[in-house]
Each structure stands twice: as C-alpha cells, then as structure tokens.
Amino acid sequence: MTTTDMPRKVDAGPGRAVPKKRPGAAGGGLRRAVPATTLLWVLAAVYGFPVLWFVLSSFKPAGDLFSSLSLFPDDPTLSGYKAAWDSANFSQYFINTAIVSVVATILTVGVSCCTGYALAKYDNKWLKVFFICILATTMLPGEVMLAPQFLVARDLGLFNSLAGIIFPALLTATGCFMFRQFFLTVPDELVEAARIDGARELSIFLRIMVPISRPIMLTLAILSFQWRWNDYIWPLLMLNDPDKFTVQIGIQSLVGAQNINWSVVLGGSVVSMIPLIVVFLVFQRYVMNADINAGLKD
C-alpha cells in the first residue's frame, strides 16, 4: 500500500501517516471492526429504542401519551409514578417480592447445583430416571400443572404464605440442566485427585465443585431472580392477604377489565424494572469476567 521505506513526519499529510512497521494492519482491523460495530450499534438501537420510549413516556402526562408522538415529554411529570405508588401498598409489595426473589434464587441455585452435580458425576439408574422426570417438567405447559400444583401446595399448608411461592419454584429443569452440562465438562481427574488427597465427597463438592461453577451460579441467579420477580399468576393464586402481595400483582391491578390508564401502568412498570436492572448490572460483571472453562484442561 502506501508504505515506503522513507521515514516521514507524522503530520506529513492525510493518508500517508501510516506507521512503518504495521503495513495495513490498522486499516484491515478497522475494516473488519466497522461493519461489526455498526451492526451491534444498530441492534442495540433496535432493542433499546422501545425501552427508551417506554421510560420517557412514563414521564408524560396521560393527555400527552397518545396525542403527541414525540420522544421527549414536553411537560415532564411524575404523576403516573405517584398515582401508581399511591394506588396500593407498593412498598410492602416490594419487600415481599424482594424476600421471595432473594430466598428463591439462593435456594434455586443451591438445589440446582447439588442436583446438577449428582446428575453429572454419579452413576445410578434412579438418578437417570430422576433426570428424565425433571426434564419432563419442561415438556408440559405451566398452565396445565397450575391446578395440581395448587392442590399440592395447599395441602402442604403453603397457601397464603410467601413460602408457597418460593418452594414450588425451587426445582427448575433449566437450572439443573445448566449445572449438569457444566459439571460434565469438569474432568473426573479433579475429583480423583481430591480423593487421593483424602477429601471427602462433601468437601469435594463444597470446596472444589461449587467454587468452579461460579459463572453458572451467577447466570442462574440472574435468571432465577428475574423469573421470581416477574412471576404473576402463581403468586396471585397462592396469596390471599394483600399484605403478602407481590409487585406484579400490584402492577396488574393497575390494568382494568375495560380500560387501562397507561400513564399509571408505565410509571409502575418502570419502577418494577429497577431492581432487575440493578441485579443484572451487579452480577453480569462476574458472569462476563469469569472463565467458564475453569478447572483443568482435559
């Protein structure tokens, strides 16, 4: 290309200031990066624009919502937020939902980790049957299982308690499957070496397997938190006492049979999104940074 052996001043002119030792490297990298980056920005805009509009719309007064299709509110107001917050006992709902989501997430991750480990590293006929049973739960739509699940939960005395929305949600096929697949990739030599060093099964699991599965744990934690936070129909069926209601029940109660006050719904929805975003921002760092192929290389 434009490279020559002649040393040039850096400001010699446009198109000529290419460093001597990297013939075309920067240009090539740029050429490859530009379309990919552009595509990513376009995708980000496509996904981000509705969210941005949604958030900005929540600051519009009800009368502006449909009449002016401008992106920014002419006359920003928090009236939607205020109406949503005043409509019900939202602070209590937030506390309830936080308890449910945090407890359920911790337990789900714990249970899935144990289950996944057992399914991956132990060999037993009944374990396989159990695994198939877990997988089978994904093959039925949730609505089908709603009624029987309700009867079981009721007979266990979980009706109208937060435990009633935590326990039925603990064992998820997705979580078990994620951990099983991960532990399958962990070489058996790791377990064997620990055994030779005299480690007991429990300490192998707790001190070796649990720490290396951190990225999976955090991924599942994000997912599980999101599931529990957005859960609607099950909490609605299980909870009778408005002091135990969750945020989603509160948001849904803003939507009427015949008409919807959009400005109030928007305000409520934006508020309900915040904890999820915070959880994602906190945990995603660990997920992205962690090396999923932790452990020995096979």
Partner: peptide, 17 residues
C-alpha cells in the same frame, strides 16, 4: 469420560451426600 465416571464415582459417593 462418561464411562470412567461411572466406574469411579459409585454409590458410596451418594451415601456421603
């Protein structure tokens, strides 16, 4: 790996869990 796994990690492991 799967085959070896089944030989090495048997029922004893389950009992310990």
């Amino acid at each position: 790996v799967g085959v070896r796994r089944s030989r090495r990690l048997g029922r004893g492991g389950i009992r310990r869990l």
